[in-house]
Amino acid sequence: MNRSIRRPVPHLPANAFDAPPGLPAPLPAGEHILWQGRPCGFGIAFRALHLRLVGLWFVGLALWAALPAALAGQVREATSLALPTLGIGTGAVLLLGLLGWLSARTTTYTITNRRVVMRIGIALPMTLNLPFALVEGAGCHLYGDGSADLPLRLRPGNRVAYLHLWPHARPWHVNRPEPMLRTVAQGGEVAAILARALAAHRAAPEETAGPVILRPRVAPGPRLATAS
């Protein structure tokens, strides 16, 4: 009888594909994750993609087209004039909702005791690395549902293109873009975690940090094991 002997695979050194989800590489010694999450899909759709305004725009166009016929008492004609515009508007709203959902599903925000890491992008995922030494300050905009936007103001000389960040950028700050954790749930708690981490970093001995790094996210390839 043939018996197969299974031997343990030799340990391979850690690499970028052994990293925790949302991070480009394993965390170095002394660094640990304080919080990790993703934005709300509806928050991105309504607040970044302006889904509500788009819907109201198409409703207004439909009413404008149907109003003369409706005032003349021609209800059927008014309906036929309004339906094409409402159909296009419905498609636009659904598309924006899908984009918001995809943006949320492909985004991971990470706060460690040393930096903020943002994995963003739908078609071309990128990883934005923001050491605390490069962060001049942070803000918090709370919404009624408990979510919050947390923009990060970078020190002068460190800049990320607005188009690379959008929709994860503070609105209307184009000349000096600010990366932003958008519509995170339990925003008050996340803001407190970020504030404590920044305060602890500033109280520690000053560390030097490199420039902001924007890396493409590469899909992991197959791992090879040596045959015995």
Rank of each mutant, 00 (worst) to 15 (best):
M1R: 07
N2H: 10
R7L: 15
P8T: 12
V9S: 14
L12N: 13
P13D: 06
A16D: 05
F17M: 15
A19Q: 13
P20W: 13
P21K: 11
G22W: 15
P24E: 09
P24C: 08
P24L: 08
P26W: 15
A29C: 11
I33Y: 04
L34N: 02
W35L: 06
C40E: 05
C40L: 10
G41S: 12
F42H: 01
G43E: 04
F46E: 00
F46Y: 11
F46W: 11
L51F: 15
L53E: 10
G55F: 05
G55P: 01
F58G: 00
L61Q: 07
A62F: 11
A65D: 13
G73M: 14
V75M: 06
R76K: 00
T79K: 10
L81W: 02
L83Q: 09
I88L: 15
T90V: 05
G100Q: 10
S103F: 13
R105F: 04
T110E: 02
T112W: 06
T112H: 07
N113Y: 15
V117I: 13
V117T: 10
M118R: 00
R119G: 03
I120R: 06
I120T: 07
A123F: 14
A123L: 08
L124P: 09
L128M: 03
L128D: 02
L130A: 04
A133Q: 01
L134P: 02
E136V: 05
L142K: 03
Y143H: 05
D145T: 04
D145I: 09
G146C: 03
G146W: 07
A148E: 00
A148R: 01
P151I: 03
L152C: 08
R153T: 07
L154M: 11
P156V: 04
N158A: 05
N158G: 00
A161V: 10
L163V: 12
H164E: 13
H164A: 05
P167G: 08
P167E: 12
P167Q: 09
A169Q: 11
A169F: 08
R170N: 00
P171E: 03
W172D: 01
W172T: 06
W172K: 07
H173P: 00
V184D: 09
V184H: 03
Q186N: 14
G188Y: 09
G188R: 12
G188I: 12
A195P: 03
A197D: 09
A203D: 12
P205H: 07
P205E: 12
E206W: 00
E206L: 11
P211T: 08
V212H: 09
V212K: 10
L214N: 02
L214H: 00
P216V: 12
R217Q: 04
R217V: 12
P220N: 09
P220V: 12
G221I: 12
G221A: 15
R223Y: 04
A227W: 14
A227Q: 15
S228K: 09
